[in-house]
Design a protein around this nucleic acid. Sequence first.
DNA 1: ACCTCCATGTAATGAGTTACATGATTTG
DNA 2: CAAATCATGTAACTCATTACATGGAGGT
Lengths: 219, 219
Amino acid sequence: MTLKHAILGLLSKWDATGYDIKKEFDDFMSIFWHSHLSQIYPELNKLEAEELITSKLVPQEGKPHKKVYSITNGGIDEITNWVGSPPDPPKIKDPFLMQVFFMDNISADEVIFQLKYYQGVRQKRLKEMKQTVQEAWESIKERQTMTPRLLMSSAVLRRGLEQEVQYIKWCEETIELVEACKSLWDADTSTESVLPFDEAKELVEDYFNVAVVLEEKED
Amino acid sequence: MTLKHAILGLLSKWDATGYDIKKEFDDFMSIFWHSHLSQIYPELNKLEAEELITSKLVPQEGKPHKKVYSITNGGIDEITNWVGSPPDPPKIKDPFLMQVFFMDNISADEVIFQLKYYQGVRQKRLKEMKQTVQEAWESIKERQTMTPRLLMSSAVLRRGLEQEVQYIKWCEETIELVEACKSLWDADTSTESVLPFDEAKELVEDYFNVAVVLEEKED
DNA sequence: ACCTCCATGTAATGAGTTACATGATTTG
DNA sequence: CAAATCATGTAACTCATTACATGGAGGT
Protein backbone atom coordinates (compact mmCIF):
# COMPACT_ATOMS: atom_id res chain seq x y z
CA MET A 1 0.00 0.00 0.00
CA THR A 2 1.95 2.94 -1.28
CA LEU A 3 -0.82 5.02 -2.79
CA LYS A 4 -0.91 6.43 0.72
CA HIS A 5 2.67 7.66 0.37
CA ALA A 6 2.19 8.93 -3.15
CA ILE A 7 -0.57 11.19 -1.83
CA LEU A 8 1.27 12.23 1.33
CA GLY A 9 4.39 12.99 -0.69
CA LEU A 10 2.48 15.32 -2.97
CA LEU A 11 0.67 17.03 -0.12
CA SER A 12 4.01 17.58 1.67
CA LYS A 13 4.66 20.08 -1.11
CA TRP A 14 1.37 21.78 -1.91
CA ASP A 15 -2.23 21.57 -0.85
CA ALA A 16 -4.27 19.81 -3.48
CA THR A 17 -7.62 18.26 -4.40
CA GLY A 18 -8.11 14.65 -5.45
CA TYR A 19 -8.42 15.88 -8.99
CA ASP A 20 -5.10 17.75 -8.79
CA ILE A 21 -3.40 14.64 -7.40
CA LYS A 22 -4.63 12.54 -10.29
CA LYS A 23 -3.20 15.04 -12.77
CA GLU A 24 0.15 15.10 -11.01
CA PHE A 25 0.21 11.29 -11.18
CA ASP A 26 -0.44 11.35 -14.91
CA ASP A 27 1.85 14.24 -15.80
CA PHE A 28 4.96 13.77 -13.66
CA MET A 29 4.70 10.50 -11.79
CA SER A 30 3.52 8.10 -14.48
CA ILE A 31 7.00 6.53 -14.70
CA PHE A 32 6.60 5.03 -11.25
CA TRP A 33 2.92 5.29 -10.28
CA HIS A 34 -0.62 5.42 -11.56
CA SER A 35 -4.05 5.37 -10.00
CA HIS A 36 -7.70 6.08 -10.73
CA LEU A 37 -9.83 8.83 -9.24
CA SER A 38 -12.16 6.18 -7.86
CA GLN A 39 -9.27 4.91 -5.79
CA ILE A 40 -7.85 8.31 -4.85
CA TYR A 41 -11.05 9.73 -3.36
CA PRO A 42 -11.69 6.92 -0.86
CA GLU A 43 -7.99 6.91 0.05
CA LEU A 44 -8.15 10.64 0.84
CA ASN A 45 -11.10 10.01 3.16
CA LYS A 46 -9.17 7.24 4.85
CA LEU A 47 -6.10 9.42 5.34
CA GLU A 48 -8.28 12.16 6.80
CA ALA A 49 -9.81 9.65 9.23
CA GLU A 50 -6.26 8.67 10.24
CA GLU A 51 -5.56 12.39 10.79
CA LEU A 52 -2.60 12.41 8.40
CA ILE A 53 -4.35 15.07 6.31
CA THR A 54 -7.14 17.64 6.76
CA SER A 55 -9.55 19.16 4.26
CA LYS A 56 -11.58 22.28 3.67
CA LEU A 57 -14.38 22.86 1.22
CA VAL A 58 -13.77 25.66 -1.28
CA PRO A 59 -16.81 26.83 -3.28
CA GLN A 60 -16.13 28.11 -6.78
CA GLU A 61 -18.06 30.08 -9.37
CA GLY A 62 -18.96 28.31 -12.59
CA LYS A 63 -17.14 25.21 -11.43
CA PRO A 64 -17.98 22.47 -8.94
CA HIS A 65 -16.96 23.06 -5.33
CA LYS A 66 -13.67 21.47 -4.36
CA LYS A 67 -12.18 19.80 -1.33
CA VAL A 68 -8.63 21.00 -0.74
CA TYR A 69 -6.45 18.74 1.37
CA SER A 70 -3.45 19.74 3.54
CA ILE A 71 -0.94 17.50 5.28
CA THR A 72 -0.75 17.40 9.11
CA ASN A 73 2.35 16.99 11.30
CA GLY A 74 1.49 13.31 11.62
CA GLY A 75 1.43 13.08 7.84
CA ILE A 76 4.84 14.75 7.57
CA ASP A 77 6.26 12.22 10.03
CA GLU A 78 4.78 9.35 8.07
CA ILE A 79 6.18 10.47 4.70
CA THR A 80 9.63 11.40 6.05
CA ASN A 81 9.90 8.02 7.68
CA TRP A 82 8.81 6.17 4.59
CA VAL A 83 11.18 8.03 2.24
CA GLY A 84 14.15 6.94 4.34
CA SER A 85 13.06 3.31 4.72
CA PRO A 86 14.27 0.38 2.54
CA PRO A 87 12.16 0.32 -0.63
CA ASP A 88 9.84 -2.50 -1.69
CA PRO A 89 10.90 -4.22 -4.91
CA PRO A 90 9.31 -2.81 -8.08
CA LYS A 91 6.31 -4.59 -9.58
CA ILE A 92 6.43 -4.44 -13.32
CA LYS A 93 3.74 -5.72 -15.65
CA ASP A 94 4.76 -5.18 -19.23
CA PRO A 95 2.30 -7.00 -21.51
CA PHE A 96 4.26 -6.06 -24.62
CA LEU A 97 7.47 -7.71 -23.43
CA MET A 98 5.39 -10.77 -22.61
CA GLN A 99 3.96 -10.81 -26.10
CA VAL A 100 7.49 -10.60 -27.52
CA PHE A 101 8.54 -13.51 -25.31
CA PHE A 102 5.84 -15.64 -26.94
CA MET A 103 6.12 -14.28 -30.50
CA ASP A 104 7.48 -17.55 -31.83
CA ASN A 105 3.76 -18.30 -32.17
CA ILE A 106 3.41 -15.82 -35.05
CA SER A 107 5.33 -15.26 -38.32
CA ALA A 108 8.58 -13.28 -38.56
CA ASP A 109 6.81 -10.60 -40.59
CA GLU A 110 4.13 -10.22 -37.97
CA VAL A 111 6.84 -10.02 -35.28
CA ILE A 112 8.50 -7.16 -37.13
CA PHE A 113 5.19 -5.44 -37.63
CA GLN A 114 4.39 -5.64 -33.91
CA LEU A 115 7.83 -4.33 -32.92
CA LYS A 116 7.56 -1.41 -35.34
CA TYR A 117 4.09 -0.56 -34.14
CA TYR A 118 5.13 -0.56 -30.51
CA GLN A 119 8.25 1.45 -31.28
CA GLY A 120 5.92 4.09 -32.66
CA VAL A 121 3.82 4.03 -29.50
CA ARG A 122 6.92 4.59 -27.41
CA GLN A 123 8.22 7.31 -29.70
CA LYS A 124 4.98 9.19 -29.28
CA ARG A 125 5.21 8.84 -25.52
CA LEU A 126 8.82 10.04 -25.50
CA LYS A 127 7.83 13.11 -27.46
CA GLU A 128 5.09 13.94 -24.97
CA MET A 129 7.43 13.41 -22.04
CA LYS A 130 10.10 15.60 -23.61
CA GLN A 131 7.59 18.37 -23.99
CA THR A 132 6.38 18.09 -20.40
CA VAL A 133 9.96 18.14 -19.12
CA GLN A 134 10.85 21.00 -21.43
CA GLU A 135 7.98 23.12 -20.17
CA ALA A 136 8.79 22.36 -16.53
CA TRP A 137 12.41 23.28 -17.19
CA GLU A 138 11.48 26.58 -18.84
CA SER A 139 9.42 27.61 -15.84
CA ILE A 140 12.30 26.70 -13.50
CA LYS A 141 14.66 28.87 -15.54
CA GLU A 142 12.21 31.76 -15.34
CA ARG A 143 11.96 31.54 -11.58
CA GLN A 144 15.75 31.28 -11.25
CA THR A 145 15.39 29.01 -8.23
CA MET A 146 16.64 25.50 -7.63
CA THR A 147 15.45 23.49 -4.63
CA PRO A 148 16.06 19.92 -3.42
CA ARG A 149 12.51 19.11 -4.51
CA LEU A 150 13.09 20.29 -8.07
CA LEU A 151 16.42 18.49 -8.17
CA MET A 152 15.01 15.14 -7.04
CA SER A 153 11.99 15.27 -9.30
CA SER A 154 14.26 16.17 -12.23
CA ALA A 155 16.32 13.09 -11.47
CA VAL A 156 13.24 10.89 -11.67
CA LEU A 157 12.04 12.56 -14.85
CA ARG A 158 15.40 11.97 -16.48
CA ARG A 159 15.15 8.32 -15.55
CA GLY A 160 11.81 8.19 -17.31
CA LEU A 161 13.16 9.84 -20.44
CA GLU A 162 16.20 7.61 -20.71
CA GLN A 163 14.01 4.57 -20.18
CA GLU A 164 11.92 5.54 -23.21
CA VAL A 165 14.99 6.27 -25.32
CA GLN A 166 16.40 2.88 -24.50
CA TYR A 167 13.15 1.02 -25.12
CA ILE A 168 12.94 2.58 -28.58
CA LYS A 169 16.54 1.61 -29.31
CA TRP A 170 15.81 -1.93 -28.15
CA CYS A 171 12.87 -2.18 -30.56
CA GLU A 172 15.14 -1.02 -33.37
CA GLU A 173 17.88 -3.52 -32.58
CA THR A 174 15.41 -6.34 -32.09
CA ILE A 175 13.79 -5.63 -35.46
CA GLU A 176 17.24 -5.90 -37.04
CA LEU A 177 17.90 -9.19 -35.24
CA VAL A 178 14.61 -10.74 -36.31
CA GLU A 179 15.13 -9.47 -39.86
CA ALA A 180 18.53 -11.21 -39.94
CA CYS A 181 17.16 -14.43 -38.43
CA LYS A 182 13.91 -14.50 -40.40
CA SER A 183 14.65 -17.88 -41.95
CA LEU A 184 14.46 -19.58 -38.55
CA TRP A 185 10.68 -19.34 -38.88
CA ASP A 186 10.79 -21.45 -42.08
CA ALA A 187 12.40 -24.44 -40.35
CA ASP A 188 9.38 -26.70 -40.93
CA THR A 189 8.77 -25.89 -44.59
CA SER A 190 12.10 -25.66 -46.37
CA THR A 191 15.16 -27.28 -44.83
CA GLU A 192 17.44 -25.52 -47.28
CA SER A 193 17.58 -21.84 -46.54
CA VAL A 194 17.55 -22.16 -42.73
CA LEU A 195 20.15 -20.12 -40.88
CA PRO A 196 23.08 -22.28 -39.69
CA PHE A 197 23.49 -22.30 -35.92
CA ASP A 198 26.92 -20.66 -35.92
CA GLU A 199 25.66 -17.66 -37.86
CA ALA A 200 22.66 -17.26 -35.55
CA LYS A 201 24.99 -17.56 -32.57
CA GLU A 202 27.14 -14.69 -33.85
CA LEU A 203 24.11 -12.48 -34.47
CA VAL A 204 22.65 -13.06 -31.01
CA GLU A 205 26.00 -12.53 -29.31
CA ASP A 206 26.50 -9.24 -31.11
CA TYR A 207 22.95 -8.24 -30.18
CA PHE A 208 23.76 -8.85 -26.51
CA ASN A 209 27.09 -7.10 -26.66
CA VAL A 210 25.79 -3.74 -27.89
CA ALA A 211 23.88 -3.42 -24.61
CA VAL A 212 25.76 -5.35 -21.99
CA VAL A 213 29.04 -7.22 -21.74
CA LEU A 214 28.19 -10.76 -20.68
CA GLU A 215 31.57 -12.35 -20.20
CA GLU A 216 34.41 -10.48 -18.63
CA LYS A 217 37.59 -12.02 -19.97
CA GLU A 218 39.84 -13.38 -17.26
CA ASP A 219 43.48 -13.34 -18.27
CA MET B 1 -6.15 -10.21 -17.01
CA THR B 2 -2.96 -11.44 -18.57
CA LEU B 3 -1.92 -14.11 -16.09
CA LYS B 4 -4.06 -16.25 -18.36
CA HIS B 5 -1.78 -15.52 -21.30
CA ALA B 6 1.39 -15.90 -19.28
CA ILE B 7 0.31 -19.45 -18.46
CA LEU B 8 -0.99 -20.29 -21.95
CA GLY B 9 2.22 -18.93 -23.48
CA LEU B 10 4.35 -21.20 -21.34
CA LEU B 11 2.16 -24.24 -21.97
CA SER B 12 2.33 -23.59 -25.72
CA LYS B 13 5.96 -24.67 -25.37
CA TRP B 14 6.10 -27.45 -22.77
CA ASP B 15 3.70 -29.26 -20.47
CA ALA B 16 4.14 -28.04 -16.93
CA THR B 17 2.80 -28.06 -13.38
CA GLY B 18 1.75 -24.99 -11.44
CA TYR B 19 5.00 -25.22 -9.57
CA ASP B 20 7.04 -25.29 -12.79
CA ILE B 21 5.17 -22.25 -14.06
CA LYS B 22 5.98 -20.30 -10.93
CA LYS B 23 9.68 -21.09 -11.34
CA GLU B 24 9.65 -20.01 -14.97
CA PHE B 25 8.03 -16.72 -13.91
CA ASP B 26 10.75 -16.11 -11.33
CA ASP B 27 13.71 -17.23 -13.42
CA PHE B 28 13.06 -15.93 -16.92
CA MET B 29 9.95 -13.79 -16.88
CA SER B 30 10.49 -11.61 -13.82
CA ILE B 31 11.32 -8.59 -16.01
CA PHE B 32 7.72 -8.42 -17.21
CA TRP B 33 5.63 -10.65 -14.92
CA HIS B 34 5.31 -12.11 -11.45
CA SER B 35 2.66 -14.07 -9.60
CA HIS B 36 2.11 -16.19 -6.49
CA LEU B 37 1.34 -19.90 -6.40
CA SER B 38 -1.91 -19.09 -4.62
CA GLN B 39 -2.96 -17.17 -7.72
CA ILE B 40 -1.58 -19.65 -10.27
CA TYR B 41 -3.37 -22.74 -8.96
CA PRO B 42 -6.90 -21.32 -9.10
CA GLU B 43 -6.14 -19.82 -12.53
CA LEU B 44 -5.09 -23.24 -13.82
CA ASN B 45 -8.39 -24.69 -12.63
CA LYS B 46 -10.26 -21.89 -14.34
CA LEU B 47 -8.39 -22.42 -17.63
CA GLU B 48 -9.14 -26.13 -17.45
CA ALA B 49 -12.83 -25.39 -16.92
CA GLU B 50 -12.67 -23.16 -20.03
CA GLU B 51 -11.07 -26.10 -21.86
CA LEU B 52 -8.02 -24.09 -22.88
CA ILE B 53 -5.82 -26.61 -21.05
CA THR B 54 -6.08 -30.21 -19.79
CA SER B 55 -4.38 -31.98 -16.91
CA LYS B 56 -3.27 -35.43 -15.85
CA LEU B 57 -2.16 -36.58 -12.41
CA VAL B 58 1.36 -38.00 -12.27
CA PRO B 59 2.26 -39.88 -9.08
CA GLN B 60 5.92 -39.71 -8.01
CA GLU B 61 8.13 -41.60 -5.58
CA GLY B 62 9.55 -39.67 -2.65
CA LYS B 63 7.85 -36.51 -3.86
CA PRO B 64 4.25 -35.31 -3.82
CA HIS B 65 2.08 -36.26 -6.79
CA LYS B 66 1.85 -33.63 -9.50
CA LYS B 67 -0.72 -32.32 -11.91
CA VAL B 68 0.80 -31.83 -15.35
CA TYR B 69 -1.04 -29.41 -17.63
CA SER B 70 -1.08 -29.41 -21.45
CA ILE B 71 -2.51 -26.80 -23.81
CA THR B 72 -5.49 -27.62 -26.07
CA ASN B 73 -6.17 -26.37 -29.60
CA GLY B 74 -8.47 -23.77 -28.12
CA GLY B 75 -5.61 -22.62 -25.92
CA ILE B 76 -3.26 -22.34 -28.90
CA ASP B 77 -5.83 -20.20 -30.71
CA GLU B 78 -6.22 -17.95 -27.70
CA ILE B 79 -2.48 -17.35 -27.22
CA THR B 80 -1.73 -16.89 -30.95
CA ASN B 81 -4.48 -14.35 -31.15
CA TRP B 82 -3.33 -12.48 -28.08
CA VAL B 83 0.33 -12.32 -29.14
CA GLY B 84 -0.64 -10.58 -32.36
CA SER B 85 -3.06 -8.11 -30.75
CA PRO B 86 -2.25 -4.52 -29.71
CA PRO B 87 -0.62 -4.61 -26.27
CA ASP B 88 -2.02 -3.06 -23.11
CA PRO B 89 0.11 -0.26 -21.68
CA PRO B 90 2.65 -1.35 -19.04
CA LYS B 91 1.78 -0.89 -15.38
CA ILE B 92 4.83 0.06 -13.41
CA LYS B 93 4.99 0.48 -9.65
CA ASP B 94 8.49 1.44 -8.62
CA PRO B 95 8.46 2.44 -4.94
CA PHE B 96 12.14 3.38 -5.02
CA LEU B 97 11.70 5.96 -7.77
CA MET B 98 8.80 7.34 -5.79
CA GLN B 99 10.97 7.66 -2.72
CA VAL B 100 13.59 9.50 -4.76
CA PHE B 101 10.89 11.85 -6.06
CA PHE B 102 10.10 12.82 -2.46
CA MET B 103 13.65 12.76 -1.06
CA ASP B 104 13.72 16.50 -0.53
CA ASN B 105 12.14 15.48 2.78
CA ILE B 106 15.44 13.98 4.02
CA SER B 107 19.04 15.27 4.19
CA ALA B 108 21.45 15.17 1.24
CA ASP B 109 23.60 12.62 3.06
CA GLU B 110 20.63 10.36 3.60
CA VAL B 111 19.70 10.74 -0.07
CA ILE B 112 23.17 9.62 -1.10
CA PHE B 113 23.02 6.72 1.33
CA GLN B 114 19.69 5.54 -0.06
CA LEU B 115 20.91 5.79 -3.66
CA LYS B 116 24.08 3.84 -2.86
CA TYR B 117 22.13 1.18 -1.02
CA TYR B 118 19.69 0.70 -3.85
CA GLN B 119 22.48 0.69 -6.41
CA GLY B 120 23.88 -2.30 -4.51
CA VAL B 121 20.51 -4.04 -4.59
CA ARG B 122 20.36 -3.61 -8.34
CA GLN B 123 23.96 -4.70 -8.81
CA LYS B 124 23.22 -7.93 -7.00
CA ARG B 125 20.20 -8.52 -9.17
CA LEU B 126 22.18 -7.84 -12.35
CA LYS B 127 24.77 -10.38 -11.29
CA GLU B 128 22.10 -13.02 -10.74
CA MET B 129 20.47 -12.25 -14.06
CA LYS B 130 23.80 -12.41 -15.87
CA GLN B 131 24.40 -15.85 -14.42
CA THR B 132 20.95 -17.12 -15.38
CA VAL B 133 21.38 -15.83 -18.93
CA GLN B 134 24.91 -17.19 -19.13
CA GLU B 135 23.76 -20.67 -18.12
CA ALA B 136 20.86 -20.61 -20.56
CA TRP B 137 23.25 -19.51 -23.31
CA GLU B 138 25.73 -22.29 -22.54
CA SER B 139 23.03 -24.93 -22.85
CA ILE B 140 21.90 -23.43 -26.17
CA LYS B 141 25.48 -23.60 -27.47
CA GLU B 142 25.69 -27.25 -26.43
CA ARG B 143 22.51 -28.18 -28.27
CA GLN B 144 23.66 -26.26 -31.36
CA THR B 145 20.09 -25.29 -32.16
CA MET B 146 18.46 -21.91 -32.56
CA THR B 147 14.70 -21.55 -32.78
CA PRO B 148 12.31 -18.59 -32.97
CA ARG B 149 11.36 -19.29 -29.37
CA LEU B 150 14.95 -19.07 -28.15
CA LEU B 151 15.52 -15.96 -30.23
CA MET B 152 12.50 -14.10 -28.87
CA SER B 153 13.13 -15.03 -25.27
CA SER B 154 16.77 -13.95 -25.66
CA ALA B 155 15.55 -10.58 -26.88
CA VAL B 156 13.45 -10.13 -23.77
CA LEU B 157 16.26 -11.27 -21.49
CA ARG B 158 18.61 -8.77 -23.06
CA ARG B 159 16.07 -6.05 -22.46
CA GLY B 160 16.07 -7.04 -18.79
CA LEU B 161 19.84 -6.97 -18.55
CA GLU B 162 20.23 -3.60 -20.21
CA GLN B 163 17.51 -2.20 -17.98
CA GLU B 164 19.51 -3.20 -14.89
CA VAL B 165 22.75 -1.81 -16.32
CA GLN B 166 21.07 1.48 -17.00
CA TYR B 167 19.39 1.71 -13.61
CA ILE B 168 22.77 1.20 -11.91
CA LYS B 169 24.33 3.90 -14.08
CA TRP B 170 21.48 6.25 -13.25
CA CYS B 171 22.08 5.71 -9.52
CA GLU B 172 25.74 6.54 -10.04
CA GLU B 173 25.05 9.71 -11.98
CA THR B 174 22.35 10.81 -9.57
CA ILE B 175 24.69 10.34 -6.60
CA GLU B 176 27.18 12.61 -8.36
CA LEU B 177 24.50 15.21 -9.04
CA VAL B 178 23.30 15.26 -5.43
CA GLU B 179 26.90 15.38 -4.21
CA ALA B 180 27.51 18.45 -6.37
CA CYS B 181 24.26 20.12 -5.31
CA LYS B 182 24.46 19.19 -1.62
CA SER B 183 24.39 22.80 -0.44
CA LEU B 184 20.85 23.23 -1.76
CA TRP B 185 19.71 21.34 1.34
CA ASP B 186 21.24 24.03 3.58
CA ALA B 187 19.12 26.83 2.14
CA ASP B 188 17.22 27.41 5.41
CA THR B 189 20.21 27.45 7.75
CA SER B 190 23.07 29.32 6.06
CA THR B 191 22.30 31.64 3.20
CA GLU B 192 25.97 31.92 2.34
CA SER B 193 27.23 28.66 0.87
CA VAL B 194 24.11 27.96 -1.18
CA LEU B 195 24.69 26.99 -4.76
CA PRO B 196 23.93 29.84 -7.19
CA PHE B 197 21.13 29.08 -9.63
CA ASP B 198 23.26 29.28 -12.75
CA GLU B 199 25.70 26.67 -11.46
CA ALA B 200 22.86 24.33 -10.48
CA LYS B 201 21.31 24.89 -13.90
CA GLU B 202 24.52 23.81 -15.63
CA LEU B 203 24.84 20.69 -13.49
CA VAL B 204 21.26 19.57 -14.12
CA GLU B 205 21.50 20.26 -17.84
CA ASP B 206 24.66 18.18 -18.10
CA TYR B 207 22.98 15.44 -16.08
CA PHE B 208 20.13 15.35 -18.60
CA ASN B 209 22.39 15.48 -21.60
CA VAL B 210 24.40 12.35 -20.78
CA ALA B 211 21.23 10.32 -21.18
CA VAL B 212 19.02 12.15 -23.62
CA VAL B 213 19.23 15.20 -25.83
CA LEU B 214 16.42 17.51 -24.82
CA GLU B 215 16.64 20.33 -27.31
CA GLU B 216 17.36 19.74 -30.94
CA LYS B 217 18.88 22.95 -32.24
CA GLU B 218 17.03 24.41 -35.17
CA ASP B 219 19.25 26.49 -37.44
C1' DA C 1 -24.80 18.92 -31.07
C1' DC C 2 -20.91 16.71 -29.00
C1' DC C 3 -16.64 16.46 -26.48
C1' DT C 4 -13.40 17.72 -22.91
C1' DC C 5 -12.45 19.85 -18.51
C1' DC C 6 -13.71 20.45 -13.90
C1' DA C 7 -15.11 17.97 -9.58
C1' DT C 8 -16.67 14.27 -6.33
C1' DG C 9 -18.09 10.17 -5.24
C1' DT C 10 -20.38 4.83 -4.85
C1' DA C 11 -20.90 -0.04 -6.27
C1' DA C 12 -19.48 -4.07 -8.30
C1' DT C 13 -16.08 -6.81 -9.97
C1' DG C 14 -11.46 -8.42 -10.87
C1' DA C 15 -6.64 -9.11 -9.57
C1' DG C 16 -3.06 -9.75 -6.27
C1' DT C 17 -1.06 -10.74 -1.51
C1' DT C 18 -0.62 -12.91 2.96
C1' DA C 19 -1.76 -16.37 6.03
C1' DC C 20 -3.07 -21.00 6.87
C1' DA C 21 -2.80 -26.15 6.09
C1' DT C 22 -0.09 -30.46 4.97
C1' DG C 23 3.91 -33.40 4.54
C1' DA C 24 8.00 -36.09 2.68
C1' DT C 25 12.90 -35.47 0.98
C1' DT C 26 17.10 -33.28 0.26
C1' DT C 27 20.85 -30.03 1.27
C1' DG C 28 23.75 -27.13 4.40
C1' DC D 1 18.83 -29.73 13.31
C1' DA D 2 17.15 -26.22 10.49
C1' DA D 3 16.13 -24.67 6.07
C1' DA D 4 15.01 -25.18 1.39
C1' DT D 5 12.75 -27.91 -2.37
C1' DC D 6 8.87 -30.21 -4.14
C1' DA D 7 3.84 -30.00 -4.49
C1' DT D 8 -1.15 -28.45 -4.09
C1' DG D 9 -4.47 -25.93 -2.45
C1' DT D 10 -8.18 -22.64 0.53
C1' DA D 11 -9.56 -18.38 3.01
C1' DA D 12 -9.27 -13.76 4.19
C1' DC D 13 -7.96 -9.58 2.95
C1' DT D 14 -6.22 -5.64 0.36
C1' DC D 15 -5.68 -3.27 -3.85
C1' DA D 16 -7.06 -1.90 -8.59
C1' DT D 17 -10.33 -1.33 -12.45
C1' DT D 18 -14.73 -0.48 -14.69
C1' DA D 19 -19.20 1.08 -14.60
C1' DC D 20 -22.59 4.12 -12.80
C1' DA D 21 -24.29 8.76 -11.18
C1' DT D 22 -24.39 13.97 -11.48
C1' DG D 23 -23.88 18.43 -13.64
C1' DG D 24 -22.36 23.14 -15.29
C1' DA D 25 -18.80 25.74 -18.41
C1' DG D 26 -16.39 26.29 -22.45
C1' DG D 27 -14.53 24.97 -26.83
C1' DT D 28 -14.99 22.78 -32.21
